[in-house]
Design a protein around this nucleic acid. Structure first.
Length: 270
DNA sequence: AGTCACCTGATT
DNA sequence: AATCAGGTGACT
């Protein structure tokens, strides 16, 4: 279940495996419902004969820029994965397979089939990503900027951070962990969070993402992939309902916000 | 701001 | 059988 660190691991892994420079020889669509254009013939035609020039991550999107100014965008959603393989152990989950010029295949796997794969002109693709907010690991993302954005929103802090139009790419686990480390309650209206806490939150987001990327990439490159490989030290609150807080000993609580689980320590986060 | 829909598989 | 899931977009 990919968040930003997992998506980044996928991107780095594709580069490491030499996806750049390879040509797409043919495309097989095993499930038409998540591709655009939705016709497998048109989709395959748009990919055919193009060379993968570069691979980029934008929020949780994977962008494969192709020769001829086309771009494939892959969003893994909850259970997607994208990899280059000679063979695959479970073909059942393969939704799209691109045959490459070196004989290997680029596979979009997605058991739950919530993920999406789109191909379009590069410029049109950029337009579809315009709504995304600042990349949390970019230089543009500063504590000052986060504070300025926070002043304009009464959203509960958790929902603010999950909003991709504000900070792009944060997911449910990473938000929970960043809020805990920043000492910010997930339910506090964002515009009421003190400047010191905003600064702590900003630092926590960047520190966490950097260390998560390292650990997830390492796990992703080893047998079994990243699933269930998020190191425990990265999870001080997520999934820990009822267990004692490692800082103060109070029980970690679980609540629901916008239909999704939030884990936090009401003593440390206020 | 909340609820549902999209899907399947693991867990209770 | 029911509930849960690391995401997002389209509805109220």
């Amino acid at each position: 279940m990919p968040e930003l660190p997992e998506v980044e691991a996928v991107v780095r892994s594709l580069r490491e495996d030499g996806a750049g420079g390879l040509k797409i020889v043919s495309t097989t669509v095993h499930r038409a419902s998540s591709i655009r254009p939705q016709s497998p013939r048109e989709f395959a035609k748009a990919c055919a004969g193009r060379i993968i020039i570069e691979i980029e991550r934008r929020a949780k999107n994977i962008l494969l820029h192709l020769s001829g100014d086309k771009t494939i965008r892959v969003h893994l959603r909850m259970t997607g994965d994208l990899m280059i393989r000679n063979t695959s152990s479970d073909e059942k989950a393969v939704r799209i397979a691109w045959k490459l010029s070196d004989g290997r295949r680029l596979l979009f796997m997605d058991p739950r089939a919530l993920g999406t794969v789109h191909v379009s002109d590069r410029a049109a693709m950029q337009d579809t990503l315009q709504h995304l907010g600042v990349e949390p690991l970019s230089q543009a993302f500063t504590a000052k900027q986060l504070f300025a954005m926070a002043q304009k929103s009464q959203l509960p802090a958790k929902l603010f951070l999950m909003d991709q139009t504000k900070v792009a790419g944060l997911g449910n686990i990473d938000v929970a962990e960043a809020l805990f480390r920043g000492g910010v309650s997930p339910t506090s209206p964002m515009n009421t969070v003190k400047p010191e806490k905003i600064a702590a939150l900003h630092g926590a987001i960047r520190k966490m993402l950097r260390s998560a990327i390292q650990s997830v990439y390492k796990a992703y490159r080893s047998p079994g992939g990243y699933r269930n490989h998020r190191d425990d030290f990265l999870r001080l609150v997520y999934g820990q309902a009822g267990k004692p807080c490692q800082v103060c000993g109070a029980a970690i609580e679980r609540i629901r916000q916008a239909g999704r689980s939030t884990y936090f320590c009401s003593h440390c986060q206020c």
